[in-house]
Computed example of a mutant assay.
Amino acid sequence: MITRRMLLSGIAASAAAAGTGPTLTGGAQALTRAETTRAETTSAETLPLTVANKTGQFGNASIWLYIVGNADNQQVRVTPDGTLAPVALSDNGADGFADYAIPLSASGDTKLTLPRMSGRIYVALGAKLKFKVVTDGAGKAALQYPAGWVSGDPNYQVMHDCAEFTFNASGMFCNTTMVDMFSVPLAIRLTGAKDQTTGTLKDGARAKVFSDLRAVEAFEPLVIGDDLRVVAPGHGLGAGLFPQDYFASYIDRVWDAYASKDLEVTTNAGTFTGRVSGGRLSFTGPATVAFDKPSTKDVLFCDGALAAPNDGTTGPVAAILGAGFNRTTLHDTAAQPTTDPAAFYGEQITHHYAKAMHAATADGKAYGFAFDDVADFASYIQDTAPTAFTLTLTPF
């Protein structure tokens, strides 16, 4: 089965091996729900891709596209003619960077061909992105990705964003993401057995995201420049932009609450019943699993004490706990996961970044944190018989 973690694991491995580039902690290390079982039929070898510029502020000549990722156990990129090419050290130019930009058509929509691969579609507005090919620890060519949350990154001043996808024999599986940051409003449409769209922002929602987060003291420093982007709070921790102990009081309340009552977590494997004892939240049920008390960093990245192995037992419980912490429903609701979005983000100490992202989208779905697909609240769509994919840069 395909999971979002599997979709991104190759990118993360290459970035980590290279020693720089993004640390895709949210997407790459967070186990999310199984997104599909293998289809009985085989999808086409290529998929028509349309890129539509509806920004209203940037002309096609000021926007560049990059399609990068993994195929056949190597880092690859897509050329303007739709060819899948492995990245190579020789791609780096005199400035030390590889120009993998795909220009948009002079006017109207841009028609491209997407080959089978797993990766990201980046858009850059106003200036090109600087990718760099390096050698990883195994001696293979690896690509350093933009890290908009790192002030020293060469792409820090460039407005950019991305969507994620896996296109293979089983179909097309894709999402918009705010796990790392948010800058450019993007919508994705997938047609095939169904016609699906997600990621579309409400009118004026981009500006409202920035204003809403500026209004919350702990989150205000995460807004970069004159509304260039907002950085996810997990990355804000490393940059000194977000309090290291932000969730500490809420984590304490959860641990105190379940020292005297049961917490029930229901997964596809069955219902797990947990209590806090000896400082650990321990569950019995289909399997015995236990978690140390998490830190704010663990909660924001859904990692560390909340790490989720792809084992069908600990992983799904960790995912639901991670969602409950980030949505701050865990303390008051002893039966998890919670599925009513009206109950999410109701605490003063909550994930205001994810809250703002969900409030901004027309369908209420977003990838504001790694386990945002728990109970199906992520901006994710899939089709096992895809016929076309459209990425739209929506109005600012």
Rank of each mutant, 00 (worst) to 15 (best):
G69M: 06
V76M: 14
Q144G: 08
T46L: 01
K128D: 13
A359V: 07
A101V: 13
S43T: 11
I63T: 02
A205L: 08
D298Y: 11
G96F: 01
P286D: 06
H358P: 00
A138R: 08
G56H: 02
V158C: 10
Y258L: 14
G278R: 05
M181A: 11
G315V: 05
A127M: 06
N168E: 09
T384L: 06
P146N: 01
T41R: 12
L114K: 00
L31Q: 02
P294E: 12
P233M: 11
V374T: 05
A94E: 11
A98M: 08
L31E: 02
D298V: 10
K261C: 14
G93Y: 04
V216L: 14
E220A: 15
F165E: 08
E264L: 10
S183P: 03
A34C: 00
F219M: 14
A318I: 05
T177M: 00
D383T: 09
H331A: 15
K130A: 13
S43D: 10
D311L: 02
A308E: 07
T36L: 09
E40C: 07
K293A: 13
L241K: 13
A218C: 15
T113E: 10
D292C: 05
H235Q: 10
V231I: 14
G19L: 03
S107Y: 07
G69F: 03
D262G: 04
L393S: 02
M117W: 00
D161K: 03
F272S: 06
R5S: 11
S277P: 10
A12W: 07
L8F: 06
L47S: 05
A343L: 11
N73K: 11
K130H: 09
E220F: 12
A269H: 01
N326V: 10
P386H: 09
T296E: 14
N268M: 02
L213C: 15
L84F: 06
F344T: 04
A71Q: 08
A141R: 07
T394C: 03
T191F: 03
D363R: 10
P86Y: 07
T284H: 08
A88Y: 05
K128M: 12
K194T: 15
A290F: 12
Y122Q: 08
F173C: 01
L190S: 08
G274H: 05
